[in-house]
Design a protein around this nucleic acid. Structure first.
Lengths: 199, 199
DNA sequence: ACAGCCATGTAACTTGTTACATGATTTT
DNA sequence: AAAATCATGTAACAAGTTACATGGCTGT
């Protein structure tokens, strides 16, 4: 996510070749997110297709340098100027899962929440451990600290939500939230064609 | 996200046709997430391709019912049993953006954080407003409450992170975190082929 | 010599998502 | 009669991601 824009923003600092872009991206995000190299070339091709970057020539070392275009520069400005647009209600996989699961008859929603909580807590603990070493003075350390903060905040939020969810579930008898398939079948139906039940 | 698994889990409750699946999904997630109908048929085709669902016959109304397979049932159990797997460090678009932006020379990182904060606060406010009406007794109301809780928690976490980030940035002179393109060029380079600089 | 990294690239595939075509039925 | 909704489907695309092929260079 945002790989495309990030690469373009880095290209805005000067021409780069593929491998270099990967290194720059990882340096600027504290080494937290590894990029498969193939994705770089992919993304560059797509940026070129969209007129945001242009493939340059090789230098003496054989490196293929890519350059940003005017349209690309404009796109970078636009990206930086406008806030990240989340589609109003960002779909979170865990939230979807638990909401659906809580309405499924015969599913132990409480146990599920407990299991997810355990996994989330473990993730948070691992994060906190790796965020422990204090090296937030250099620019790279700073980038890393920012990113780890984000992950920690997200993990904490997840835990809080899971606890809140457990509370809510505890206030209802087990399975009382289950929804059977609605049998509000077609008020306005489709035509009654040849029913091929025994096809 | 998790649309695929959710539809399969719903199918596990009994055969459904496309439109019905959409209604079920939206009912079970509190109407927070609208699904484009096309996506349902898409997903069903893919589930069939993967052997998790099978396209059945039409009934008298012309509805095309889909059924889950044994493999599909196993997949649902697997989904419910195992916690959501986030790839260790989940990539958050906002975090990527700010980390990259903070290391870009000439970018007003603090202003950027402020702008993002404003947008996030507005989103949180809108969420809190729509989460205000208390109808958490019915199963549907419950589903809606769960989902809105998740969105609220995520939005709060985002705000907290943005504030923490602003603090961190405030402790450094503006632009002191900027990274120029690394000029650690090839220690181990590629071959020196014909340099086609004037191609 | 050999392992491993640097480097470029291609091909395939995933899930999510939208736009569109088609047509029937229901409501206004 | 027109508009809205129900219903099925197709086609295309986006972004992310991976596996693989190829080859040169570096360090042991």
């Amino acid at each position: 996510m945002a790989v495309r824009q990030s690469l373009l923003a880095i290209l805005d600092r000067g021409p780069c070749y593929g491998y270099q872009l990967r290194a720059e991206f990882e340096r600027r995000t504290g080494g937290t997110w590894a990029l498969n190299v193939g994705q770089i070339y992919n993304t560059l091709d797509r940026l070129e297709r969209d007129g945001f970057a242009a493939k340059g020539d090789q230098d003496e070392h054989g490196h293929v340098y890519w350059e940003i275009t005017d349209a690309g520069r404009a796109e970078v400005r636009r990206w930086l100027r406008s806030p990240v647009q989340r589609p109003a209600a960002a779909r979170d996989e865990l939230a979807v899962k638990l909401a659906v699961a809580a309405t499924l008859p015969g599913v132990d929603a409480r146990g599920l929440v407990a299991a997810e909580r355990e996994a989330s807590a473990a993730r948070l603990e691992a994060l906190t451990r790796s965020a422990a070493d204090p090296e937030a003075s250099s620019a790279q350390g700073m980038a890393r600290a920012l990113v780890l903060d984000a992950l920690v905040c997200a993990a904490e939020a997840e835990l809080r939500w899971l606890d809140r969810t457990a509370d809510r579930l505890a206030q209802h008898p087990a399975d009382s939230l289950a929804l059977e398939l609605s049998d509000e079948r077609p008020k306005r139906g489709r035509p009654v064609r040849a029913a091929a039940t025994a096809a």
